[in-house]
Simulated scan of single mutants.
Amino acid sequence: MKTLPGSQDLPLTVARALDLIGRTGSVSEAAETLGVTQPAVSKGIAQLEARFGLSLLQRGARPLRLTEEGEALARFARQSDLAQSQALGALEDARSNRRGTVRLGSFGSSASFHILPKTLAAFARKHPGISLEVQEFPDDELRKVLAEGLVDVAILSIEVNETFEVLPITADKLVALLPLGHALMSRRQLTAADLADDPFILTKGGSGPLVERWFAQAGIRPRITHTILQVNSIVALVQAGLGVSIIAEQALPDVSGRCHVVPLHPTVPRTIGFARTGRPFRAHAPDTFWQFCSRLELLGPDPG
């Protein structure tokens, strides 16, 4: 197959010289602007003309003018310089945290009610150019999408033998949720045996396995009558007197006047934190967010 004369890279300096000649009508001015010699510019133009067998300058005109083919190369130079300028601007914006996106995965209520609003608001004040996209997933699915790189950072209930790199943010614990007027409302703590006889509403959220282990450790099997994902639905069922439940304290909305909250014995603590894989981030913005979160103190004041 015959090789086209234009199949090699175009010399950008010569194309820029043509653009300047088209504006000034002068080879010497173009050379001076580019910081090269006039003979070098003339030689480069001559080599391109010989390579393509086309004239790039209307040499009989004064001042010098470009042919249509020369103007095509001048446009190439302008477009290349614009693309370079835009690319460098994007890099500088990213370096200076003036732009970028962080994909944040959340496991739901505990994060959404108590942790994310304060953290994300503080981050937005510090880096207003970086957008944060929050997506909620069930715990098991969230771990999968984080491992697959579909989110940059996830907020999780941290496991004992955690496989991800984590930043602990806050501590949480499980609490019992009783209907108002329940016989156990006056108790300061509740055991698994205390809740064994009531209809039980089991959460399908991230604390569900912790609840089941808590009962199992006491040798108790709760009378599960409902299995519910949404915290507000659990609260509504308990409020209606349809059973008792156990959920994470930080997942609770304001239940005053609706339900009664009682601590558990033994206590069931859990740690919530941000997690990432060990791989490098896909962009600078997620790294900026991770570094910001790394400065938050466990159980400290509101981030800011």
Rank of each mutant, 00 (worst) to 15 (best):
I272K: 08
E297A: 10
E49A: 06
G304K: 10
C293I: 10
I224H: 12
P286K: 07
L18E: 04
R78I: 03
P266F: 13
R78D: 13
A77G: 01
F76G: 01
R75N: 03
G60M: 12
A283E: 12
E212R: 13
L299E: 14
P5C: 10
I155D: 06
T101F: 09
G108E: 04
I224K: 09
K204S: 10
G108T: 10
D198Q: 11
H265G: 05
R143T: 06
I155L: 15
H182W: 11
P138Q: 08
A90G: 13
F281G: 06
G149P: 02
I45M: 10
V261C: 01
D194K: 01
R103L: 12
I234Q: 09
S294W: 07
Q47T: 06
G243C: 05
G208L: 01
A218W: 11
T203L: 13
G25N: 03
G6Q: 14
F52G: 07
A111E: 08
A121Q: 15
L116T: 14
V41N: 01
L54S: 14
T271D: 01
G241L: 05
T288H: 01
D287Y: 09
R276C: 02
V14H: 00
A176M: 04
A236R: 12
A46F: 05
A193L: 13
V262C: 11
F137L: 13
D140H: 03
R187T: 01
R16G: 01
D19V: 00
T267V: 13
I115G: 08
V153Q: 11
L298T: 08
R270K: 08
V145I: 12
L299P: 02
S7A: 15
P199K: 00
R282M: 03
I234L: 14
